[in-house]
Amino acid sequence: MSIFNYRKLHLSLAVVFIILGILLSTSYYARKKWDISPGPRKRKLIDFIDRQNKERHKLEYELKGLRADVTKLQKTAANSKGQIGAFAKEMDNLKKQSGLTSLKGDGIEVVISDATVVPSNRDPNNYLVHDYDLQIIVNALWRGGARGISLNGQRFVSTTAIRCAGTTVMVNSEPLGGPYKIEAIGSQSKLIKILKKDPDAKQVLQSYAKTYGLNVDVRQVDELKLPAYKGSLKFNDIEVVAQ
């Protein structure tokens, strides 16, 4: 190789190393000036979520107390005579029907959870309990005449929906984990019958459970107690239709 080629090679290498040095220096000072590590930001986000959860639980506790005060006033009014007493009794009946008060009675309990073993060569999603599986069971119980339903302690009302955020099931904006316990108050024989007769519920509780190893337990329970709904009742997208 000629002297000219050696010099050309050395010059090219020198230029490459200079550019590389500039890039490394720029990256170092930029990282030093702007901390882009995910740690602090993640910690701030976790702290923010924790504060919001504490505030939400505090407001729920206050709301529970206010509703208890309203219930006492309504009971006092119900004992009075005339239109006020009749109105208070009607309000009490509507609250029971809408899930705003606790409910006691005979019913059934359905417990379902993910498969214990997932084969390595299979889709793991098939071995999990999903939101739509739970919705199918709840819908069947309503059709079977259930007077009240709860899922892991969350009471169902007209605005309740079962959703999935990632692998987490959400009910009344509360994250729930398995096993999932569905409690329904109503005629025990009718509720058991509808779960065996409804094609979708039968598929989840029998076919899927057998094929994918989902853990299912259905039993009759005397004296169930469902909690009152404790969430918000604010409707943002509702209008009164003119008669």
Rank of each mutant, 00 (worst) to 15 (best):
S2C: 03
I3M: 14
F4S: 13
F4P: 00
F4I: 09
R7E: 06
H10F: 15
S12Q: 06
L13I: 03
V16W: 13
I19H: 09
T26P: 00
Y28L: 14
K33F: 07
S37G: 03
S37R: 02
P38A: 15
F48E: 10
F48A: 12
N53A: 11
K54Y: 01
E55D: 07
R56F: 02
R56Q: 01
H57M: 02
K58D: 05
L59E: 11
Y61F: 05
E62R: 15
L63Y: 10
K64N: 07
K64G: 03
G65D: 10
A68N: 13
V70I: 08
K75D: 01
N79E: 13
N79F: 06
S80E: 14
Q83M: 08
I84D: 09
I84N: 11
G85T: 02
A86T: 03
F87S: 10
A88N: 13
E90D: 07
D92T: 06
L94E: 10
L94C: 06
K96F: 05
K96E: 11
Q97D: 12
S98G: 09
T101D: 12
T101E: 12
G105T: 06
G107E: 06
I108H: 03
E109L: 13
E109F: 06
V111A: 12
S113R: 05
D114A: 13
T116E: 15
T116Y: 10
V118Y: 09
S120D: 15
N121Q: 15
N125C: 11
N125A: 15
N125P: 00
N126F: 10
H130R: 14
H130K: 14
H130A: 10
Y132T: 11
Y132N: 09
Y132K: 08
D133R: 04
D133T: 02
I136S: 15
V138R: 15
V138N: 12
A140E: 05
A140C: 06
W142K: 12
G144S: 12
G144K: 13
G144H: 11
R147I: 04
R147L: 13
I149D: 00
S150G: 07
V157H: 05
T160R: 13
T160H: 08
A165R: 15
G166T: 04
V169A: 14
V169D: 09
N172G: 01
E174H: 07
G178M: 10
K181Q: 04
S187Y: 04
K190V: 07
K190M: 10
I192C: 08
I192N: 11
I192H: 08
P199A: 01
P199R: 05
Q203D: 12
Q203F: 14
V204M: 07
Q206E: 06
S207A: 12
A209Q: 01
K210N: 08
G213R: 13
N215K: 03
N215G: 00
V218P: 00
D222I: 00
L224E: 07
L226W: 04
A228V: 03
A228H: 03
Y229H: 08
Y229I: 05
K230I: 06
K230Q: 13
K234L: 12
N236W: 05
V241H: 02
A242F: 01
A242N: 02
Q243M: 02
